[in-house]
Design a protein around this nucleic acid. Structure first.
Lengths: 203, 203
DNA sequence: CGATCATGAATGAACGTTCATTTTTTACAG
DNA sequence: CTGTAAAAAATGAACGTTCATTCATGATCG
């Protein structure tokens, strides 16, 4: 195995750039090769095909993210704080690595082919971080026991990911990442109703 | 203009089927032609190119949806009920027209390029239905004035759309559409915290 | 020097789009 | 109502480009 140059990750990093710029289908292998400063053929020494690059990219990068988020969350004891930490981390990715965020968000979902036929366990693992937190909060009597962790995890993830889109798509976003993370977490924790409305007529 | 057969919409409907099945980039014009029972060349009498089909599809179908949702919401007076109605409508699309739901969902994310270029106003109009409701609720003193409608609309939409994915991806979904719509709305209205946690330490 | 790694030109299949030809519709005169 | 000719609509085979992938050759390493 090449060690000194580590072509494998050079290619992955190049692919992130190119996929983010042009999208998976419009990306040429030759573009990735050029970006990675290797020959076209070299890519096929490290990956089976174009799709395999996308797959590996996803596996490797999301694994790193999962580790980081889990570490950050372990530092907290309050499930509410944990949820906020998750939100912050999720949104911060746009700031830290916009190209990766774009690829993870846009390209990986261009077709449900990816989600369907390839049992996407890594992705599930990521979203399950949320449901574990929710469950913990329920055990502590802090979160309502009638909310379904399986729904909350998707809703929370979906809400955050949609916000990510905003930053990816708009040049100068109207909200800061930190305030938005807090805001969304706050909404999920306490809802948008006023206390008066809360007491009043049924939901 | 041909009236009796209306090739335009026949092609659009065929495209929805084919795009849903294979995704935009893997879809062949010849597939759409076959599905619509027209010749390949005929498609180019009605659309400029492949991309134009996607664009038209998007515009036309989302316009119909907007009209329907707005009508349903106008019947309600309570903003909380309006939010629930929106959720129900959004999720119901998977039931009513799964293929369209799939296309709208993945192509929306996929073609962020097209969001950028075309300033996708129809989509914005759809999501703005939510922010209008939130604003109304705030004016009525029913929703907290410190929540930002611009964030809530995205979060709510994102949460719902992520749930849609569940039904599109999983053969036999664990939750019913109606209960999920209610559940998500309920979470956004009141939050997941218990009353005890609410009173306790800060958020 | 044998083995491993890298190269990039050549290959071949795929597919969006065009356009010469055919079919259908329309208009209208007898 | 019928015949007919121009216009409009539809067809699908052919074109030409684009690229993923391969592999014979060359470079580098141990």
């Amino acid at each position: 195995m090449r060690r000194t140059s580590d072509k494998h990750s050079k290619i992955i990093q190049a692919a992130i750039k190119v996929f983010a710029r042009t999208g998976f289908f419009n990306a040429r292998i030759s573009d990735i090769a050029k970006e990675a400063k290797v020959a076209d053929g070299t890519i096929y020494l490290y990956f089976n095909n174009k799709y395999d690059i996308l797959l590996s990219l996803f596996e490797e990068e999301i694994s790193k993210i999962i580790v980081q988020v889990k570490q950050a969350i372990e530092k907290e004891t309050d499930p509410r704080k944990m949820l906020e930490t998750f939100a912050l981390h999720h949104l911060k990715l746009v700031e830290k690595n916009e190209e990766l965020a774009e690829v993870l968000q846009m390209e990986l979902r261009q077709s449900n082919k990816f989600m369907k036929e390839y049992r996407n366990t890594r992705f599930v693992e990521y979203v399950d971080i949320i449901s574990v937190i929710v469950h913990k909060g329920q055990e502590m009597g802090m979160f309502r026991s009638d909310v379904m962790p399986g729904v909350v995890k998707r809703a929370y993830f979906g809400a955050l990911d949609e916000m990510s889109r905003l930053w990816i798509l708009t040049p100068n976003p109207p909200y800061s990442i930190e305030e938005t993370a807090k805001h969304i977490c706050e909404i999920f924790l306490h809802g948008i109703c006023t206390d008066e409305a809360r007491k009043g007529a049924l939901s």
